[in-house]
Computed example of a mutant assay.
Amino acid sequence: MTQPLKLPFYAKLACILVSLISFAYIFCIAKDILTPVLLAFLFAVLLLPIFTFLNTKLKFPRHLAAIICMAVFLSFIVGILVFISYQVTYMANDFDTIKKNANSFIIEIHKFIRENFEISIGDQKKYLDSVTKDSVKNGQAKLGSAIISISDVLLDSTIIIIYTFLFLIYKEHFKLFLAKLISKENHSVLKDILSQIKVSINNYIVSLIIEMIVVSVLTGLGLWIIGIKYFILLGLITGILNLIPYIGILVAGIITVLASLTGSAEISMILGILIVNIIVQFIDNNLLVPLIINTKVEINAFVSIMGIIVGGAAAGISGMFLAIPLLAILKIIFDRIESLEPWGYLMGNHIPRKFAWRVRRTKTQE
């Protein structure tokens, strides 16, 4: 029996770093192909309990069980989109009021700048006209790319649906493939890794849904208290956009400010919206995320922020969304492989109470 090859520490470290860099490089150059696959994998894991119940308990054929799962999933997504589109259509009836209040708000801003910075309204308008001309030229150039982007989103959505369906059908096939890659004595470790990945991803996505609901309710309640007309729609949009780290809440705030112009153009109303968003974000970051998200994923904040930044740089919003579950999968794998266990500990949120270096004294020192 051949003995396993033992490498020194620096060689192991070099191999690990080269492997991680290689995987990251492959993901960057193939992100358009891999991103839909990874998103479909997450959705398939989320739908797996329903699929297992239909296929195992109710004895539905695999294809029929997968079709029912996809129908439930699509019904949920379409229901949210229909509600939002209905509310947006209803809001469009107040477009004239929004335009009028927006003009009043802009005039107030002009007066504020003139009184505090001594810049005349004429100079401000000249500057805005120059910026507007440049933006119009750029907008015309980007119109075609925007249409292409929308078509790409629709195509990716269709592909994700197909991939999710196929992941559910070929679940056992992929498991047997992984089992054939490793030796039989390590099958128990593989089974443990796969079960933990399923639990971790399910918990993470369910936690995100709970967080989205709580943020939507809190935001909608706050906007209702300060008198915003479309508080239900704006609360739901804020909850959905909050799933996008950093960027989502800023976009939601801008949409809420614009929607508030259906009522009045008072600065106090806009300040109220900012206060509501700040309070909700404080509750989300200090209560919801630590209690709901971090306890399920067990990734520390430092690694999470780095992963989100790297994911955003590599694949945009999709990469930011995929960063946390991919890090959770890596941590599960690292924790169960002895040579990689220190890296799993580094990614975790374990905070030791006290650490002290212990140096053994030799007899001569004593």
Results as ranks from 00 to 15, higher is better:
residue 197 I to H: 05
residue 157 S to T: 15
residue 114 R to Q: 13
residue 158 T to D: 00
residue 186 N to S: 14
residue 169 I to C: 04
residue 195 S to A: 13
residue 193 I to E: 07
residue 173 H to V: 11
residue 118 E to T: 13
residue 162 I to H: 00
residue 117 F to K: 12
residue 192 D to F: 01
residue 171 K to S: 05
residue 181 L to F: 06
residue 182 I to M: 03
residue 194 L to R: 05
residue 139 G to F: 03
residue 168 L to I: 07
residue 140 Q to I: 14
residue 144 G to P: 03
residue 162 I to M: 05
residue 161 I to N: 00
residue 150 I to E: 05
residue 173 H to G: 00
residue 133 K to H: 09
residue 147 I to T: 10
residue 172 E to V: 02
residue 112 F to L: 09
residue 179 A to Y: 11
residue 134 D to Y: 10
residue 193 I to S: 00
residue 152 D to G: 06
residue 122 G to F: 03
residue 142 K to S: 13
residue 191 K to G: 15
residue 162 I to F: 11
residue 110 H to G: 03
residue 120 S to Q: 09
residue 134 D to I: 15
residue 166 L to E: 06
residue 172 E to K: 08
residue 140 Q to V: 12
residue 175 K to Q: 10
residue 153 V to I: 15
residue 139 G to V: 05
residue 165 F to N: 03
residue 156 D to N: 15
residue 114 R to V: 01
residue 161 I to L: 15
residue 117 F to G: 00
residue 159 I to A: 08
residue 119 I to R: 02
residue 123 D to F: 02
residue 171 K to C: 00
residue 134 D to G: 15
residue 148 I to W: 02
residue 130 S to C: 04
residue 128 L to W: 10
residue 128 L to S: 14
residue 167 F to D: 06
residue 152 D to P: 00
residue 136 V to F: 08
residue 171 K to H: 12
residue 179 A to N: 06
residue 140 Q to W: 04
residue 139 G to W: 01
residue 190 L to Y: 08
residue 137 K to G: 10
residue 128 L to D: 14
residue 196 Q to A: 11
residue 126 K to G: 00
residue 193 I to D: 02
residue 147 I to Q: 09
residue 189 V to H: 00
residue 189 V to G: 00
residue 117 F to S: 10
residue 148 I to N: 11
residue 133 K to L: 11
residue 119 I to M: 07
residue 116 N to I: 06
residue 188 S to E: 12
residue 125 K to S: 02
